Amino acid sequence: MRDSTHETELPALWLRARSPDPSQRDAVTGQRLMNPHLLPDDLYLLGARFEKDMLHLAFSDGFAGSFDPQELLRGSVLSTGLPATRAWRSDLQRKPLYVWADLQNDEVLYQALKDFIELGFLLVNETPTQADSILHIAERFGIVRTTNFGDFFEVYSRPESNDLAYRPVALGPHTDNPYRTPVPGIQILQCLQNETSGGFSTLVDSLAVAEQVRLEDPEGFALLSRIPVRFEYRDATTHLVSVKPMVELDGEGHMTGVHYSPRLDDIPLMSQEDTVRYHRARKRLGTLFEDPQYELRFRLNAGEMMMFDNNRVLHGRTSFNPAEGHRQLQGCYVDRDGPRSHYLVLQRKFG
């Protein structure tokens, strides 16, 4: 295979596994009927020829079939087919703001999903505010994930509650539920009522912050992506523990987000030197998370909601005074792959 800069040999094993022949793949599902893991490791090509824009290949294991060169080109790139992420700061020019009624149009939803995948969050106004409307809203984007908090949860001031989110205190930027495996991928928070002057919502893009940490302290960033951290939550009926690095990388080593919650984390026992090195990197990360140049701050009013990638975009809240009036939000979680699947399906129509 040749592009404008270099040639790449296509190994026989790679080619053989990509056969579209009906004897090798199910015609409906596209799933393999053979196991390429069991092919002989000394497999080689016996012959190759072009005929009517198709490549005909014969292999040493006795199989011969036709291959579409364009499909081979597409398969040579490890790509999800999704838009690339775009890191942002507080000076983000165009915020991804939509109206709920407009999102019933698939073409508008397609654009909104593109924004969400690129930026990691959406803002939606004029949403329905019945008792369980949030579940109907969530199903437009993906599949609701039930936790010990239920299908959805109510966020308002409750003394002696089992989480600080249900107190009127300020909440710094954090990841929800880092003690779960896997961590809830997407969170939706919808305002039902807000009679207080405080309680402003905040969002911070961890990709932008961590990139700055990586530039300033590459070794420190490497520690944050490698050293495991213990997260724990427990109440009368639930006890959850998860151990994972604070910075999340994908299989190609690219950063996808963080697990960040100073209320819940414990670093492992290390040497004094390693502890100080790790703490300095974590301290810088935390300082930038609270820096106004990275933070979006806004008030959610009744019928307004925010949806954000819980692994990538940290959320928080300023304190509020319950004596001023009632402030109530509803929240739920959606699996991370739901919006991505919707986007790829709609891309066939609008892309």
Rank of each mutant, 00 (worst) to 15 (best):
E9S: 11
E9V: 09
D21Q: 07
P22Y: 04
S23A: 12
Q24D: 08
R32C: 14
Y44N: 04
L45Q: 01
L46R: 03
R49Y: 07
R49N: 10
H56Q: 12
G62V: 08
S66Y: 14
L73V: 08
R74Y: 11
L78P: 10
S79Y: 10
P83M: 09
R89H: 11
L92C: 04
Q93D: 15
V99E: 06
D106K: 12
L109H: 13
A112G: 07
L122A: 13
L122H: 11
V124M: 05
N125C: 09
H136L: 13
F141N: 05
G142P: 05
F152N: 00
T175P: 11
G185M: 02
L189W: 02
F200W: 15
F200T: 14
S201Y: 06
E216I: 07
D217Q: 02
D217W: 02
P218W: 07
A222C: 04
I227T: 15
V229M: 10
V229Q: 01
R230M: 11
F231E: 13
A236H: 03
T237M: 15
T237S: 10
T238V: 12
L240D: 05
V241H: 15
M255T: 01
K283N: 15
R284I: 14
L285H: 04
L288K: 00
F289W: 01
D291Y: 09
Y294C: 04
R297H: 00
R297G: 00
L300P: 05
G303W: 15
M307Q: 04
D309K: 02
L314C: 07
T318D: 09
F320Y: 06
H326F: 15
C332P: 06
Y343A: 03
L344F: 15
L344D: 07
R348S: 06
R348Q: 08
K349Y: 04
G351K: 15
